[in-house]
């Protein structure tokens, strides 16, 4: 199954989405990302019990922060899927890419350049 997904998606591997902190997402935007999304295991299937549930709540929180500072909370998303769902992974990558393309570049980055 050689699935392709948009090359602009850069994957940062973490042991669990529960490891992702608010500041990690914020830093990604400071460093020029146009969008960030988390891909966690299906809810109820977390190896660390509730890491993915916590991640979802943090995504909601960081959306508010990004709305406040004008970057836009729409640039963040959370997906849940199992490791067997390669097809869905590629779909999510395309979906996010399309959405972010619609939103245009990260406004904090474009002002800088």
């Amino acid at each position: 199954m050689r699935l392709s997904y948009p090359p602009n998606v850069k994957i940062v591997k973490v042991p669990c989405t529960g490891r992702v902190d608010i500041i990690h997402v914020m830093k990604a935007f400071e460093n020029g990302a146009d969008g960030v999304y988390l891909v966690g295991c299906l809810e109820g299937d977390c190896h660390f019990l509730v890491g993915n549930v916590r991640a979802r709540r943090r995504v909601e929180y960081v959306k508010r922060l990004l709305d406040e500072c004008g970057v836009g909370g729409d640039r963040v998303a959370m997906y849940n899927m199992s490791s067997a769902e390669g097809q869905r992974f590629a779909e999510a990558a395309r979906e996010v890419t399309e959405k972010i393309r619609g939103l245009g570049p990260n406004p904090a980055k474009s002002a800088k350049s």
């Binding site: 400071e30 990004l66 406040e68 004008g70 904090a108």
Partner: peptide, 10 residues
């Protein structure tokens, strides 16, 4: 981070 992003945007 929020302040930096906001001020960069501005």
């Amino acid at each position: 981070s929020e302040i930096r992003l906001f001020r960069a945007k501005e």
